[in-house]
Amino acid sequence: MNEFHGRQNYVADPELMRAVNIAMVLQKPLLIKGEPGTGKTMLAEAIAQALDMELIIWNIKSTTKAQDGLYVYDVVQRLYDSQFGTAGVDNIEKYVKLGKLGQAFTAEKQVILLIDEIDKADLEFPNDLLWELDRMEFHIPETGKTVIAKHRPVVIITSNAEKELPDAFLRRCVFHYIEFPDKELLAEIVRVHFPDLDEALLTQVLEAFYRIRQLPSIKKKPSTSEIIDWIRALQHGGVDPKRVVKEIPYLGVLVKKNEDMDTVRRMWR
C-alpha cells in the first residue's frame, strides 16, 4: 500500500499525513476543512505528486449539480443534429459526456479526485453523491449502461464551512481540520517556498506576521498564501530586514480589508 509522507514542496504536519493514510486504507473520502489559505487544495496536488497518480480536479461552483460530475446528456446538440440529419443521431452514447467523477471512474489507473470547495454548491449537493461515492458506480438511463470504477479513486474533498454538510454525507468521510501552522511549521513552509531566504528577514517577517494575526480586531487574518506573497514583495523591493517589523512595508499584500489596514496602522504607531 502506498503511503503519503509529505512532499518536498508541501509541508504537512504528522496529523494530516495520518489522516490521509487512514482515508486511503479505509477507502473513504477525506474531508478537509480549515482557514482559507492553509493549503487545502495544495494537499491534493502534493499527494498526487507523492504517489505519482493523476489528479482530477472538480471545482464546485454555486450552480454545480451532482449530475454534472457524473455525465451530461447533450439533448440540445442532439436536437439540432436531428434537424439537419447529421449521421449518428441514433447513437445516444455520442451525446453522453462524462463529468469529472465519471472520468475518475473510467481512468485506466487509480487517480486522485479532488472535489474542491464542496460547500459552494446547493445544500442538497453532497447528498446526491452519497451512492456514487459509496459504491463508486452510477447508471446512465439514456444508454442503459452502468459506469463502475475500475480503480477506486482516492477522493479528497475540501470545504470552507460556508454551509453545513449533511450528516449522512459526513458519516462516510474521514475528517481532518487543518489548523493554522505554528511559528516553526510556518517557518518550514516558508523555507520550502524560498530555499535561500535570509534568516534575519524570515525571523522579522514571522514576528510581524504573528503580531498582526494576534490583533484582536483584525477581521480577515492573513494566512499562509499571504505571507508567501508578502515575502516575495519584500524580496523584490529589496527591503532591509530591520525595517520589516517597524514599518510593515507593502501592508496591502498582507491585509486585504480597509478596516484591517487602519487597525494595523493604528496599532503600529
Partner: peptide, 26 residues
C-alpha cells in the same frame, strides 16, 4: 481501522484515529 492497525500501535495514534473518524466538525 483498528483491525488494519491504522493507530500504528500507539495511544496518540489511537487518539487521532478516533478523532478523524468519529468527529466531523472542528
Amino acid at each position: 481501522a483498528l483491525e488494519k492497525g491504522l493507530h500504528s500501535s500507539s495511544f496518540t495514534g489511537f487518539y487521532y484515529l478516533c478523532r478523524c473518524l468519529l468527529v466531523k466538525s472542528e
